[in-house]
Design a protein around this nucleic acid. Structure first.
Lengths: 351, 351
DNA sequence: CATCGCGACTGTATCGTTACAGATTTGAAG
DNA sequence: CTTCAAATCTGTAACGATACAGTCGCGATG
């Protein structure tokens, strides 16, 4: 056999999935040529490329991920890093949906990488870095000085955060404008004549804690209302804890007449505490809540809600990681979604 | 160099992650020996194994997934196949949590594989089969004659279904006992003196439709109650549709006095419809609902709920696929979770 | 007419792992 | 002193893809 065709395959197993070798055999070309033709390399003739593409399509060729990954290190994987604990009200579902909607048009797969204890937040990141498990990472529960962001930046692995940081590192993020949410919430409550307002806030170590507080306080100043302290309780507490603490507050001298709830499930507990204190929504108290789903609007239409669309957040996050992977500058991969009050559920045909 | 050490590595890059080669170099053994030692093969000396394990642990060796996958075809991936549409009430979150809890102790990663249109249900399965993308598959929204089950069985890829089938194929599954749920729901309603019952049922093409109906009808017979037809509406319809249809029903001659809701979010819509028809829960009507989360108990404690623990379902499903992959007989990998009425939320310290 | 450059294509080595078929040593049996 | 088997260990090839360094033929150049 002459040298020219020395590496050509002689026989091909027939049930197996096609590889570059299959196409090489069918076109009479070398494996390298086929590989380069499919990547549209400049040193391959136009007609050859066309032939290769045609055959590849015909036989349904799809590159073997393990082969690519072994040779190039490219995993075609995006890793979504989650705390098992943050799943209380199920924000993950729509997030996963949003992400996969974007990934569907790409070669990327979505791998969910969980971690349990809060102190282990770095563990999954290290795992991904050490094993090269992903091309990009999506993290949430972002902190102002987030060690995960520091580590990922240092090691040069593309990522995006759900929430912002404050460390002077420019990186991709998507965030809900919690400052504005709280500000508009205060505006709304004051417009209803409420003046003693309370905020159910995020835990202080997360970045959006300060955003939400800042918006709340700016609102208090601009619209001349007063704050009632509820600092000992936050949205990471159990619903029972929130309820009981709020009942106590509502029975006290200091009882607020307006509530801003930083979470939808927290709102449920607040309502329960309020009712246990024998108060009534819209009469003794008004409430504005952030809400990632519909149930509050259905079951407690008295509560004014601002919808946080987690699904869209998922989309934005996915687009941003991919952009980062593709080398787009981080500052172009930042987005903030604006809160808007939701209209009430329509009361059907007969109004 | 003598033949014995011909394939030994001379130098080793230092920043890189350790491979078998690294361990081979450090122990002075051959790569093959190291590989076999780590798998506890019988032809490797006990002391050698010990040394290899020690070094491997010290340097934090973790097998390269791409290498293993390329060589053996083993992906160490479990694929969760989801409809984007089923995410309405976010059942995915706790499910993902449950699955990852089990996978955490294994080498498996969880990949989420979505599909959009209902007619495309087979597409992700084919993709996984064709590309060898996973060692095992988890599917939901199971139908009595499910083409996905047929295909996976035929091609011999391990899987588990959330829900049962009726095709004479013995396969792993986990299911909620919807027959019993509906039966117990009817018992409860009749015990409260309700006799005209309605069922908000699953869409007819899913297997648990017939389970739930069967339990409902058995209950009607055993406890002597009557059914009110609501067949044109099911839990896959939009909340607005359910509400409007139910309002019409509640205003009709045929208005039921007892409701069995096959879904938690459906219950919300039913309540809305009922209230629009100027009826009141516990007065005109009682209601039992399946509920995958807590909000109904908090916001509508009048509704009697049976909790479907999706997180546990996730765990069971994960265990079952892995069992199937490990070759355990399918009939040992089937489980049914029993519904139980939930106690009301405790009313706090001062009850 | 030799030489060069260029366009089009190709072989080899390699990523990390494992299946397979040896190879070497040791001690016991003949 | 062979011979052989058992116990350990080892090299080679291969999985599928790609980086790299060619090769080949051909027309233009000096």
């Amino acid at each position: 056999m002459d040298n020219k065709t020395k590496n050509r395959p002689q026989t091909l197993p027939d049930g197996a999935r096609p590889t570059l070798k299959t196409i090489a055999f069918m076109t009479g070309l070398g494996i390298t040529t086929v590989s380069r033709a499919l990547k549209d390399a400049p040193d391959i003739g136009a007609e050859t490329k066309e032939r290769v593409r045609l055959v590849a399509k015909q036989i349904g060729y799809q590159p073997n991920r393990a082969g690519v990954r072994l040779r190039t290190g490219k995993t075609n994987v995006i890793s979504l890093v989650l705390t098992l604990e943050e799943e209380i009200m199920g924000i993950t579902s729509p997030m996963v949906v949003g992400i996969t909607e974007i990934l569907a048009g790409t070669p990327y797969h979505l791998v969910v990488t969980p971690y349990s204890a809060v102190k282990d937040a770095l563990a999954p990141i290290r795992y991904i870095l050490d094993t090269g498990a992903a091309d990009g990472v999506i993290i949430s529960r972002t902190e102002p000085h987030d060690p995960r962001v520091a580590l990922l930046t240092e090691r040069g692995l593309p990522f995006v955060t759900h929430g912002r940081t404050e460390m002077g590192i420019v990186h991709p993020y998507h965030d809900f404008d919690n400052e504005r949410f709280a500000y508009e919430a205060v505006r709304k409550l004051v417009a209803r004549g409420r003046r003693k307002l309370v905020l159910l806030e995020p835990p202080p170590h997360l970045t959006f804690y300060s955003h939400m507080r800042a918006g709340f306080e700016r609102g208090l100043r601009d619209f001349q209302a007063d704050a009632v302290s509820f600092h000992q309780t936050n949205i990471d507490h159990s619903l029972v804890e929130i309820r009981d603490a709020f009942e106590v507050l509502m029975r006290s001298e200091d009882a607020p007449d307006g509530i801003v709830s930083g979470s939808g499930s927290g709102a449920i507990a607040l309502i329960a505490g309020l009712e246990m204190a024998k108060k009534k929504l819209t009469e003794d108290c008004d409430m504005v809540s952030k809400s990632p789903s519909d149930f509050l609007r259905w079951l407690r239409p008295e509560v004014m809600t601002m919808y946080e669309d987690i699904r869209i957040a998922g989309r934005e996050l996915a687009k941003a990681v991919i952009g980062h992977i593709d080398g787009e500058p981080p500052e172009t991969l930042q987005s903030l979604s604006q809160p808007e009050f939701q209209p009430p559920i329509t009361r059907g045909l007969r109004a």
